[in-house]
Simulated scan of single mutants.
Amino acid sequence: MDIEQLLAQRARLVDGEMPNLLMDIKPPELAAAVSYAILSKGKRIRPALVTLASEAVGGTAEKACFAAASIELIHSSSLVLDDVIDKSEKRRGRSTVHTLWGTDMALLTVQILAALSLRIAARDPRLIHAIADSLFYMGEGEAMELVEFAKDKKGYLDLAFRKTGSLFSSAAEVGALVGGGDKTQIKKLKEFGNHIGLAFQIRDDILDCISKEDDLGKPVKKDLFMGRPSIVLLDAINSGISIERMMKCNNGELMHLVSESIENAKNVAIEEIDIAKCQIESFDDSYAKTKLNEMGDYIITRSK
């Protein structure tokens, strides 16, 4: 089974946890917005990470499904909020929640999704701290982007941890917790999640420069036009290429102009995956360990 087949398989497991969550949400307009956000499926990489982390320490994917659903709901809430802040009209090729129901209802959808996540996580109170941490750090990450916090690689990685790495870290942590991992295993899987999360964000930055909107399912060159920190753009700026010059480029021209910065970003992503793999090197060989390593490779080669 390749990694995309695995993601699809684990997505079906996690999706089974979702329908009951949508009962009794009032008013119907809010229920519809929440349902739309949940059903706007991505690849479900984070919940798959939860299940694999559980298996890597001797647990099962099935018993980790509730924890995986909790993580996916946090991710869904963050996407709705991102789209409001960025004023994005498309996400995964579909209209965003705020374009269909308005900004006020979208913000309430964010709140409900986070609440549903905590309700599920409360089945095992040990998970609450990890979920709360990711919510806290992701809020910091959104604010850091707004105030142009990152000016160099160090600042960028700090931001990328909060924006993306923290939820990957929490995903691996809750998987290890429900799987019965010991303290050392939980710590190592948290670090594994953090570093593949950083690599995921770096790949997103690269795709923002090299993709077409129809392929990505959302606007491209968003980082450039919104003045958002991107490891590619920061490297290009620090090498002497001005924002103004980049903004005049179409996508093909931009790829050529910042090609060296794209290569540098790819190398940083590879470094992050190598660090991640080192975290679980001492784990017993297993199907889950193999797939965790394959997930790292997939993250830095994906096309969307």
Rank of each mutant, 00 (worst) to 15 (best):
M1E: 10
M1P: 08
I3V: 14
Q5G: 12
A8S: 11
R12E: 11
L13S: 07
D15T: 10
D15P: 01
G16A: 13
G16L: 04
M18R: 08
M18T: 01
L22W: 05
I25D: 08
P27L: 05
P27N: 08
P27E: 06
P28T: 12
A33C: 06
Y36I: 04
A37K: 07
A37Q: 08
I38C: 09
I38S: 10
I38D: 05
I38T: 03
K41T: 00
R44A: 09
I45Q: 04
P47Q: 05
L49H: 02
E55H: 02
A56I: 10
A56T: 06
G59I: 03
A61D: 13
A61G: 12
K63F: 00
A64V: 04
A68T: 06
E72M: 11
S76D: 15
S78Q: 11
L79W: 07
V80F: 04
V84D: 09
D86W: 06
K87R: 15
S88W: 05
R91M: 02
G93Q: 05
S95Y: 03
S95R: 14
V97M: 03
V97K: 03
T99F: 01
L100V: 11
L100G: 00
W101Q: 01
M105T: 15
A106N: 04
L107T: 11
L108I: 14
L113G: 01
A114C: 14
A114W: 14
S117H: 12
D124Y: 03
D124G: 03
R126S: 12
L127R: 00
I128K: 08
I128C: 07
D133C: 05
D133Y: 08
M138S: 07
E140L: 13
E140S: 04
G141C: 06
G141L: 03
V147W: 13
F149R: 13
Y156K: 08
L157H: 12
D158M: 01
A160M: 01
K163M: 07
L167H: 02
S169C: 14
S170G: 12
V178D: 07
G180M: 05
K183V: 10
T184P: 00
I186R: 15
K187L: 10
N194H: 11
H195I: 00
I196T: 12
G197N: 11
I202S: 05
D204G: 10
C209Q: 13
I210D: 02
K212Q: 11
E213I: 02
D214H: 09
L216H: 01
L216P: 03
P219I: 01
V220H: 10
K221W: 03
K222P: 01
L224M: 04
F225A: 06
R228G: 00
L233R: 09
L233S: 10
L234P: 09
L234E: 06
A236E: 13
I237N: 08
G240A: 11
E244A: 11
E244Q: 14
R245H: 12
K248H: 07
C249T: 09
C249K: 07
N251R: 06
N251H: 02
L254I: 05
H256E: 15
H256Q: 15
V258E: 06
S259L: 02
E260L: 10
A265E: 04
V268N: 04
V268L: 13
V268Q: 09
A269I: 09
E271C: 02
I273K: 06
D274I: 13
I275D: 06
K277F: 00
Q279E: 13
A288L: 11
A288N: 12
T290W: 09
N293M: 13
N293W: 00
I300S: 11
